[in-house]
């Protein structure tokens, strides 16, 4: 196992940040922690990267215990924190050199690993890191986290606040790093990114709600979901919420996702109800669950 977490708990004063968390990440796996701000993702990252000590439980990373062997872990992992943490007054090249030197290596020695990412920021190598755009900062931070050829890579919300195009490019980079044998633990609040991981854990309020492959998680959604739409979405949401048999009502892009409490639900009844509320062009169709549906059902 590349990462093994057993019954980890961590509290800050009265707040339980993590409660009895256990999971394992296999070598070469791309594992996602999916959850909103405040779920406990960063606390977990800091424990696994030996920057924080858990109140309870044990964990190993690359075969080393996070407390007893913390120095060995620091040599074997790369960590990209959610907050930009490079030296703002050093240039791109100086930052990279600095991190290479700290880890007793050189840029040349591991250039192959970062080449693809580094060439994109190389034109700006004499620019101070603080003056880079968000996307370029993110690429530099990834290069710095990779320069000592880590076995395990920790990425804490690398795509938060990043536009869809840059997010897509970032995930393509991750897939290529994975193919080079690096184990990756990545966290994200974007549920659509879950589908790009081998396995995911849905996490909220310090607890793991569910853990599996994205496909299996979606498959285990307990209900039939219907895509509903009508001429006025706001009235549609209000009407669906007023319908006495509703189980859940969530806007989902151009549709509203609706589930019913009854086993013998007939969409025609709902259609009549909505029309009685003066909605027109009503459409009700079966649809498949997404990771986000599952998350909301579990978090309810």
């Amino acid at each position: 196992m590349s990462i093994s977490v057993r019954h980890i708990s961590k509290s800050y004063k009265n707040v339980k940040a993590l409660e009895d968390i256990s999971f394992e990440v296999k070598e070469g796996e791309l594992f996602g922690l999916i959850g909103p701000d405040g779920a406990g993702k960063t606390t977990l990252f800091r424990i696994l990267t030996t920057l924080l000590i858990a109140n309870e439980g044990t964990a190993t990373v690359a075969g080393f215990d996070v407390v007893a062997d913390y120095k060995k872990i620091r040599n074997s992992v790369g960590y990209m924190p959610g907050k930009f943490s490079l030296y703002q007054d050093l240039t791109v090249e100086e930052n990279l050199n600095f991190f290479a030197t700290i880890f007793g290596t050189t840029i040349e020695q591991n250039y192959d690993l970062i080449k693809e990412i580094y060439v994109q920021i190389e034109p700006f190598k004499t620019r101070r890191a603080g003056k880079l755009s968000g996307g370029m900062k993110q690429k530099l931070a990834l290069c710095c986290a990779l320069i000592h050829k880590p076995k395990v890579l920790f990425l804490d919300e690398p795509t938060t606040g990043v536009d869809p195009v840059s997010r897509k490019e970032f995930w393509e980079m991750l897939k290529r790093l994975q193919q080079k044998g690096i184990t990756i633990l990545v966290s994200t609040p974007y549920m659509d990114e879950a589908a790009l991981c081998d396995r995911i854990a849905l996490i909220q309020d310090g607890k793991i709600l569910q853990m599996d492959t994205p496909q299996a998680i979606v498959k285990h959604y307990p209900k039939q979901i219907y895509n509903v739409r009508a001429n006025n979405t706001y009235q549609l949401i209000n009407s669906l919420k007023a319908y006495e048999y509703n189980h859940s009502v969530y806007p989902f892009g151009e549709f509203v996702h609706y589930t019913d409490r009854r086993a013998d639900f007939n969409p025609k009844d709902l259609m009549l109800f909505l029309e009685s509320k003066n909605l027109s062009n009503v459409e009700i169709k079966k649809t498949e669950a997404t990771i986000e549906d599952t998350f909301m059902e579990l978090a309810k």
Binding site: G35, D37, P189, Y250, M296
Partner: peptide, 19 residues
């Protein structure tokens, strides 16, 4: 940004209401 999916939807319901 970063808000959980249920709250994100409640937020949009507030937007609809205001509009």
């Amino acid at each position: 940004g970063g808000v959980d999916p249920i709250t994100r939807r409640q937020f949009w319901e507030m937007i609809y209401k205001a509009a």
